[in-house]
């Protein structure tokens, strides 16, 4: 069982307050949906949670212990997917899985064809990433989540570029992760998220 708790987080950029006094708690088997208008500070918050940025004020607790950016147990427990697709255009799909993903916290896939089948990219092994559509790139990027089982997923607009079928697959995967006692923090502009046990946080 894992728990993540944020207490009164605040972030300023120069003299501008991005957000202030943000608090929430999340346990295994739950998800948190971060909502807000453009510029409300959703990505800034999620980058603090991923350990890429520091809050100006407040506290983060991972399993009831204070979290610092170099906390290796916390860093080792999370998968952070940013809104960028984090792919190298010159590499093929296969090379991305074998060479790039292991450098980004995923394991090398033991059965690549099965993994590609999962994300609907079977048969695209030798295609260069630069020749894939935006939706296919997003699917490839999301494959990282499946290649190493980490309890906490932090996802910044993961359904962008995905078609209806892709979105169904994504939320099904998230739902399965939550039911396996995982935790998910997700930024989404959707009107509704097809997830059970979802808490929301408005910025």
């Amino acid at each position: 069982m894992y728990s993540l708790e944020a207490k009164n987080l605040s972030k300023w950029r120069d003299h501008y307050c991005v957000f202030t006094d943000v608090s929430f708690s999340l346990n295994s088997g739950e998800s948190l949906w971060i909502r807000g208008d453009n510029g409300a500070g959703k990505t800034s918050l999620i980058r603090i949670l991923a350990g890429l940025s520091k809050a100006n004020d407040g506290e983060l607790l991972w399993n009831n212990e204070s979290f610092l950016a170099d906390n290796s147990s916390y860093q080792g427990a999370l998968h952070y997917l940013s809104h960028q697709q984090t792919l190298i255009p010159h590499l093929t799909v296969l090379e991305s899985i074998q060479l790039l993903f292991p450098m980004l916290g995923a394991k090398a896939a033991s059965d690549i064809s099965l993994s590609l089948n999962d994300v609907g990219l079977a048969g695209f092994e030798q295609h260069k990433v630069q020749n894939l559509s935006a939706g296919q790139k997003q699917r490839l990027s999301l494959l990282r989540l499946l290649l190493r089982n980490k309890p906490l997923w932090i996802l910044d607009e993961p359904q962008s570029h995905l078609d209806r079928e892709g979105q169904a697959w994504l939320f099904d995967t998230i739902e399965r992760h939550i039911s396996n006692k995982g935790m998910v923090i997700i930024i989404s502009h959707a009107k509704d998220l097809p997830l059970t046990h979802v808490k929301s946080l408005d910025l």
Partner: peptide, 8 residues
């Protein structure tokens, strides 16, 4: 720019 560095 493509986000690979921060993820690494």
């Amino acid at each position: 720019q493509n986000g690979v560095l921060e993820q690494m």
